[in-house]
Lab assay of single mutants.
Amino acid sequence: MDSLVVLVLCLSCLLLLSLWRQSSGRGKLPPGPTPLPVIGNILQIGIKDISKSLTNLSKVYGPVFTLYFGLKPIVVLHGYEAVKEALIDLGEEFSGRGIFPLAERANRGFGIVFSNGKKWKEIRRFSLMTLRNFGMGKRSIEDRVQEEARCLVEELRKTKASPCDPTFILGCAPCNVICSIIFHKRFDYKDQQFLNLMEKLNENIKILSSPWIQICNNFSPIIDYFPGTHNKLLKNVAFMKSYILEKVKEHQESMDMNNPQDFIDCFLMKMEKEKHNQPSEFTIESLENTAVDLFGAGTETTSTTLRYALLLLLKHPEVTAKVQEEIERVIGRNRSPCMQDRSHMPYTDAVVHEVQRYIDLLPTSLPHAVTCDIKFRNYLIPKGTTILISLTSVLHDNKEFPNPEMFDPHHFLDEGGNFKKSKYFMPFSAGKRICVGEALAGMELFLFLTSILQNFNLKSLVDPKNLDTTPVVNGFASVPPFYQLCFIPV
């Protein structure tokens, strides 16, 4: 009986604490739906499609509103004006990374994606500088992407125009580009180590996009005490870190300090320079996690976009025909596509942009946080508050993009057929937390897609009208449904 009384008292205290925290903070924060004790607004949000729920709530509470995930307040920004004001106009104040408990377990605050403060700034600055020195957006990395595009075309030829699921092959190409940047090595598509790495990356994007992960991140005790797919994700990350550590040891034994070959060499050189400046942010643990982040951000996002792009091109054969006509006119058949071609191919450029806009790969991006107490639109948001960005509300804005739910390359073309930029184009987020590999991803999408369409016609196994382009999961990332196609050599 005594234990029951204690339990009831504990629960009562928890409920009172929950109510007090919510009521004391709500006077400062933007308005929002009334949260339930302990669980907050979790029942009012469709976990399978958070973005749709945010759109519905914005119609009631406006472009800036507050939700509670458990006891934790989260300020939501919906629509271009609110997102721009926060991420661009007040970029420094909104540059923090929001709480992501599962990532905390995986990387302990290291790396480039989930770190904060001085650690994040130094690692991000170093990573950007190193990638630029190796030619991100310049010639040397373009050579690597072109080489991988040629290998991709050869792998597709091996399908002999038979029906195939493109998931694996389209994942190999961007993964190999990242391998060449980090390890100075590309792998054969049949290499077992490479296959294991690909498998872990593919599993992780599916797990991260599941409703279960949303629950884990908002009720963090689940991570330590409950079984579930989150444990598989943590094991996959541990596998990748151990693999990278092996490569780091190989580099330490063979590195030429006067001739760095890749990202690992550059990081080890930085560690050597910083060894007298303790404590340094440049450690082996930081290198492991930064490399894992580059793999995660640079492989599955690009391969998922490529997979979605081919599905949309199957669905819209008239678009595919126009792209192939432009390829034939500008590039021809006797040389590989290059980035200089893009400025002469406005329709193809528009298609690449429209694919990214339409699929809305990361509907709410990753959570941000404010780095200080900030007054925002007459609300006071306390330091450390998590900020949720609705990228969907920007990419699918119906004023900027008429009929935003329709796939239409003319969203990025003017009346004369010239490519038209849009400030609403934010597939990689915006501001200080914009994806480090934005330029690389854009290069890969253009070169891989043009190389495929230069060499193959795409054949659907069903009537294009019957192809479903609805994402199968739409949590962290929008993942396309399973499909097969035939690559018919031109």
Rank of each mutant, 00 (worst) to 15 (best):
S3Q: 11
L4G: 01
V5N: 11
V6E: 09
V8N: 06
C10S: 13
L11Y: 13
S12I: 13
S12R: 09
C13A: 14
L14V: 14
L14P: 15
L16G: 13
L17V: 14
L19P: 13
W20I: 14
W20F: 12
Q22N: 12
S24E: 09
G25S: 06
G25R: 11
R26N: 12
R26M: 11
G27H: 13
K28D: 13
L29N: 03
P30S: 01
P33K: 02
P33T: 02
P33M: 03
T34K: 13
T34I: 10
P35A: 10
L36Q: 01
P37M: 04
N41P: 04
I42K: 07
I42R: 07
Q44I: 06
Q44T: 13
G46P: 14
G46N: 12
G46E: 08
I47G: 14
K48F: 09
K52P: 08
K52G: 11
T55P: 14
S58D: 06
K59Q: 15
V60P: 04
Y61A: 02
G62P: 03
G62L: 00
P63H: 09
P63A: 07
V64C: 14
V64S: 05
F65R: 00
F65S: 03
L67Q: 01
F69H: 08
K72C: 08
P73T: 04
I74R: 03
V75P: 02
L77W: 03
L77E: 00
G79N: 09
K84M: 07
K84S: 09
K84F: 06
E85V: 07
E85F: 06
L87E: 06
D89Q: 13
D89N: 11
L90F: 14
L90C: 15
S95R: 09
R97V: 03
I99Y: 15
I99R: 15
F100N: 15
F100R: 06
E104M: 14
R105M: 11
N107G: 09
G109A: 07
G109Q: 06
G111I: 01
G111N: 03
V113C: 07
N116T: 13
K118V: 09
K119P: 12
K119V: 06
W120Y: 14
K121R: 13
K121V: 07
E122Q: 13
E122Y: 07
I123L: 10
R124S: 06
F126S: 06
S127H: 05
S127M: 11
L128D: 03
M129T: 13
M129S: 13
L131R: 04
N133G: 14
F134L: 14
M136L: 12
G137S: 13
K138A: 14
R139Y: 08
I141A: 04
D143L: 11
Q146G: 06
Q146K: 13
Q146M: 12
E148A: 02
E148H: 00
A149F: 01
A149G: 04
R150L: 09
L152Y: 00
V153I: 11
V153R: 00
E154T: 09
K158V: 04
K158M: 08
K158C: 06
T159Q: 07
K160E: 12
A161P: 02
S162F: 08
P163A: 09
D165F: 00
D165L: 00
P166R: 01
P166E: 02
F168V: 06
F168M: 07
G171R: 15
C172H: 03
A173C: 02
N176G: 02
I178E: 02
I182S: 01
F183C: 05
K185I: 04
K185Y: 03
K185T: 08
R186L: 01
D188S: 08
D188L: 03
D188P: 06
Y189N: 04
Y189G: 02
K190E: 09
D191P: 01
Q192A: 13
Q193G: 12
F194I: 05
E203G: 03
N204S: 13
N204P: 00
I205F: 15
I207P: 00
L208I: 12
L208K: 08
W212V: 10
I213Q: 15
Q214R: 12
Q214V: 11
I215D: 04
C216A: 15
C216K: 14
N217I: 05
N217H: 15
N218V: 15
N218Y: 15
N218P: 12
F219P: 06
P221T: 11
P221I: 07
D224I: 05
Y225V: 10
F226A: 07
F226W: 09
P227D: 09
H230A: 11
H230I: 09
L233T: 05
N236Y: 03
V237P: 01
A238R: 13
A238S: 13
F239S: 12
F239N: 09
K241M: 02
K241V: 02
K241H: 04
E246I: 04
V248S: 05
E253P: 06
S254D: 12
S254L: 10
M255H: 10
D256N: 10
D256G: 08
N258G: 11
I264M: 09
I264S: 02
C266T: 08
C266Y: 14
E272V: 08
H276N: 14
N277A: 10
I284S: 05
I284A: 06
I284T: 07
L287P: 01
E288Y: 11
E288C: 15
N289G: 07
V292G: 05
D293M: 13
L294R: 00
G298D: 00
T299R: 07
T299C: 05
T301L: 03
L306R: 00
L311M: 05
L312H: 06
L313D: 00
L314N: 02
V319M: 08
V319L: 03
T320E: 08
T320K: 11
T320Q: 15
A321R: 15
E325T: 12
I327P: 00
E328Q: 14
V330Q: 13
G332C: 06
N334A: 11
R335H: 08
R335S: 07
P337V: 09
M339V: 06
Q340D: 13
D341I: 04
R342W: 05
S343V: 14
S343W: 10
H344S: 14
P346E: 04
P346T: 07
P346K: 06
T348L: 06
D349M: 14
V355H: 01
Q356F: 08
Q356I: 12
I359V: 14
L361I: 08
P363W: 00
T364N: 12
P367R: 14
P367N: 10
C372Y: 10
C372S: 14
C372P: 00
D373I: 01
K375A: 09
N378A: 03
L380F: 13
L380G: 04
L380W: 10
T385C: 06
T386N: 09
I387V: 14
I387N: 01
L388I: 13
I389R: 00
L391G: 05
S393N: 05
S393D: 05
N398F: 10
K399W: 08
F401G: 01
M406N: 13
D408S: 07
P409Q: 01
H410A: 12
H411L: 01
L413G: 01
N418P: 04
F419L: 09
K420H: 09
K421F: 08
K421A: 15
S422F: 04
F425L: 07
M426N: 06
P427A: 09
P427G: 06
S429Q: 03
A430E: 09
G431L: 00
G431D: 02
R433L: 04
R433Y: 00
I434H: 15
C435K: 00
V436L: 15
V436D: 06
G437S: 05
E438I: 07
A439P: 11
G442V: 14
M443G: 02
M443S: 04
S451M: 07
S451L: 03
L453F: 03
L453S: 01
Q454Y: 02
L458M: 04
S460I: 03
S460R: 03
S460T: 08
L461S: 10
L461T: 14
L461F: 07
L461A: 12
V462I: 13
P464K: 05
P464A: 07
N466K: 12
L467T: 03
V473N: 14
G475K: 05
G475P: 06
G475W: 09
A477G: 08
P480H: 02
Q484R: 11
L485T: 04
L485E: 00
C486M: 12
F487C: 01
I488A: 08
V490P: 04
V490G: 04
